[in-house]
Simulated assay, not measured.
Amino acid sequence: MDWQDEWWTSSLGRNGFWHREHPADHFRTSAGDAGDAAMTAEYLRALLSVLPEHLRHHSGAPGHGSPAGDPTRIAPTLVDLGAADGSLLRAAARARPGWALHGVDVRPAPADLPPTVHWHQHLWDVRTTGWTGPDGLPTNLLGPDGPDGPLLVVAHEWLDDLPCRVAQRTPTGWELLGPHGPTGWAPDPAEACWLEAWAGDARTVEVGLTRDRAWAAIAASLPPGSILVAIDYGHLRRDRPPEGALLGYRDGLLVDPVPDGRTNITAPVAVDALAAAVERVPGVRRLLVARQSTVMADLADTVPADPLPADRGAPLAALVGANRRRALADPGRLGANWWLVHAVGPTP
């Protein structure tokens, strides 16, 4: 089998990594984990800072938001794709008590989620380009009884875990690779077009078409006024890693990407290809494409008009928050992540 098939089986198959392992045991992300609420709070602050004005300062609680009669008083609905242990949703429940909160993940709901959080055990299937429920049957993002109205959809380090094909340049064209080397198969026409447009000078490339299709399909399914935020590590055409960038993580260590069900297999996102794909969806417009370090720097230059509850705590909490902001802004680590923010249709 090629890399996409092997990756799918080892990561998202019935006994794959995402069904049996706890992500926090293997890697750390900007969203932190249940044991680092300060990191998650600062990450949420950065997320709120890039939203349109009517969302950024609206808590949905009495006494906040827009004047009575203004339709923007309707509390936003936050959807966290790849919600893992629910850290971001917990932070949002504290900071924005009036928001409707939804977590989407292949795993069952973690224990002790706030009662305002709705959990959806859904899986994005790159093979069919659609969502499936726990029963394996097709569904939509939040199931048949999902909320009406605009959504704020956040995919934090979700796209990089979607399996994709890996191709190698040869004297006669591109050839697909598997974990054990060349397969002898050529990419299909759509993959070949993607490679022509986005591979750059790289000799080995993760074909980002599965990620592009996922993000564009999600955008196309959202009602007007929705916002999409993809936050992930990635690269541009001009700096694609020459020999590819397929990675493995296990027990906090960077290891070979072995499809054994115990290793988190991941690959950076082709940021420019992803942005181009979602911007081809009718009505979608770009709000921001920037490094996380830039987002954090911009945040540091502003005084939040609607501070998070953590701001009202003790000086020690403020010091911890400042340390977390520095970690999130570090361009050599978490700050290297890309933020892609897009709006769907007219703002409500």
Rank of each mutant, 00 (worst) to 15 (best):
G321Q: 15
A190D: 12
W174D: 14
E6I: 02
D33T: 05
V153R: 02
E279W: 07
G103C: 11
A314G: 03
S221A: 08
R203D: 15
G313A: 05
A314C: 07
P187R: 02
A327L: 15
D301F: 09
G345V: 00
V126I: 08
H26M: 10
T40A: 07
G244D: 05
R286L: 15
H54D: 05
Q121F: 08
L113F: 11
H22A: 14
L287I: 12
V205H: 02
V205Y: 01
H54Y: 10
A167D: 01
A314P: 08
V344N: 08
L236Q: 15
T116M: 06
L141M: 08
A314E: 13
A310D: 14
L55G: 00
T294Q: 14
A167Q: 14
P110R: 03
L152Q: 04
D301I: 09
V104S: 04
T9F: 04
W338N: 11
V281P: 04
E279S: 10
A220Y: 05
R28L: 14
A202M: 05
G225I: 00
Y43T: 11
V79I: 13
A167C: 08
W339N: 07
S10P: 01
L176A: 11
A297Y: 00
P242H: 09
M1R: 07
T170H: 13
L209C: 10
A216L: 00
P179I: 01
L287F: 01
P76F: 06
D33I: 13
S49Y: 02
L299E: 13
C193D: 13
R127C: 05
G252H: 12
R240W: 05
A329K: 04
P307L: 12
G103P: 10
A318V: 06
G35A: 15
H64I: 03
P110F: 03
D161R: 08
G332N: 01
A297D: 06
T266C: 13
A83I: 01
A83P: 03
L141I: 12
V50W: 04
A46L: 15
P348G: 01
D239H: 14
G234N: 14
T132F: 08
I218W: 11
G69V: 11
A219H: 05
G103Y: 00
D5I: 02
P242I: 01
L253C: 07
S293F: 12
P179M: 02
P67S: 03
A267Q: 06
W99Q: 09
A297Q: 09
P309R: 04
P71A: 09
L222D: 14
T302V: 14
H22D: 15
A267K: 03
G143Q: 00
R127W: 09
S293V: 14
P52V: 02
L253I: 05
T347F: 03
A273F: 00
R286D: 09
I74V: 12
